[in-house]
Measured scan of single mutants.
Amino acid sequence: MGFKLLSKLLVYLTASIMAIASPLAFSVDSSGEYPTVSEIPVGEVRLYQIADGVWSHIATQSFDGAVYPSNGLIVRDGDELLLIDTAWGAKNTAALLAEIEKQIGLPVTRAVSTHFHDDRVGGVDVLRAAGVATYASPSTRRLAEVEGNEIPTHSLEGLSSSGDAVRFGPVELFYPGAAHSTDNLIVYVPSASVLYGGCAIYELSRTSAGNVADADLAEWPTSIERIQQHYPEAQFVIPGHGLPGGLDLLKHTTNVVKAHTNRSVVE
């Protein structure tokens, strides 16, 4: 069995187990497998329904001669939608809004960016022009300005110390501490036991640490421990890039980060 097929099978099995364990909360999309990078042309966006009122959005972007996937989250909030992270750029984010209108038909009224990198804030200006209120932590807003990236308009308070959590509509926002970046936030959907790890969490097929220019490698494993301790009931975990899975993604990420750190020390 090929690795790609095995990865998709694991996603399907995880979703099936969740649907059985929580039949009222989960209505997993039966329309197909989780979209992969090879299936999404740059400039297009796919939506994948995880649970009743919960979707991931998947886009792709060219970077350094390669094409990478990027995940975000959409959560229903009454007759409105909360968006977590842009679709990595203005063109993708405009396509995301169009796809949401086509498939869901509810307005996106608020959006949260989970850290300051372009795959999370690139497209904020498109959201703002569409009347979406954009939010991020003060740290993310400051770092985005320093980096020359787009800056969300509103500040999220109460997320300055490791372990801080605040309720934001249908989700809980959690600051686990520094990891992929010093400002990275985690998003949890309690009604569906869905954990969105953003770039602080890796997919299972990833074996290298990737972009760690703004990471705190020493603190990252401790931050992941905080996530595990705060959300032990999480059933569906979405990484910032690639295929979702279960809580095993947290341990896998820790292993990859520690291996990278150990290699760096040896070198």
Rank of each mutant, 00 (worst) to 15 (best):
N255G: 12
P221L: 13
R141S: 06
G89Y: 04
P152Q: 02
L96V: 13
I50H: 15
I17N: 04
L156S: 01
P35H: 14
S30P: 13
S27P: 07
Q229C: 04
P239H: 00
I186K: 00
G53D: 13
S7H: 13
S208Y: 14
P35Y: 12
L6Q: 08
F3P: 04
A165M: 15
D248C: 05
Q229E: 13
D118C: 14
E39K: 10
L195Q: 01
F3V: 07
G105H: 15
L247S: 07
L249N: 04
A90K: 09
K251A: 06
R141I: 11
E150W: 05
E101H: 15
T182W: 15
M1N: 04
Q49S: 13
S62C: 11
K251L: 05
G197L: 03
D248V: 09
V187E: 02
F236C: 12
V37M: 11
G246D: 08
I227E: 01
I17D: 05
G131K: 13
E157C: 12
G242V: 03
G177Q: 02
S160M: 11
P23H: 07
L156N: 02
A165Y: 14
Y12P: 04
D77N: 05
V256E: 04
P41G: 12
V166E: 08
P239I: 00
L96G: 02
G210N: 15
S205C: 04
V126N: 05
D29C: 08
S7W: 09
A95Y: 15
A213N: 14
A209S: 13
G43C: 04
Y12W: 10
L6K: 05
P23L: 09
R206I: 11
V67E: 12
V194P: 00
T253E: 00
D183R: 00
G78N: 06
I50V: 08
G53A: 12
D64I: 08
A165R: 13
H180M: 00
A66I: 14
R142W: 12
G169H: 04
G242A: 03
T182A: 06
P221H: 09
V212S: 13
A165V: 13
S22L: 08
L204I: 13
T86H: 00
A90W: 12
H241Q: 01
L47E: 01
H252M: 03
I17S: 05
Q229R: 13
H180N: 00
G245C: 03
G177C: 02
T134E: 01
H241V: 00
G122V: 07
G65E: 10
Y12H: 12
V237Y: 05
V112Y: 03
L249S: 03
D64H: 14
E33V: 07
K102F: 05
R141Y: 03
E219L: 08
P69S: 12
I151N: 05
L217I: 15
S16I: 15
T253L: 01
G242D: 04
V108W: 03
L24K: 06
P69Q: 05
N211C: 04
N92W: 04
K258Y: 09
C199Q: 00
H230Y: 07
L73Y: 00
E147C: 14
A144V: 12
R120T: 04
S160I: 12
R141V: 10
Q235E: 06
I58L: 10
S70F: 02
Q49V: 11
H241F: 00
L13C: 07
L249F: 03
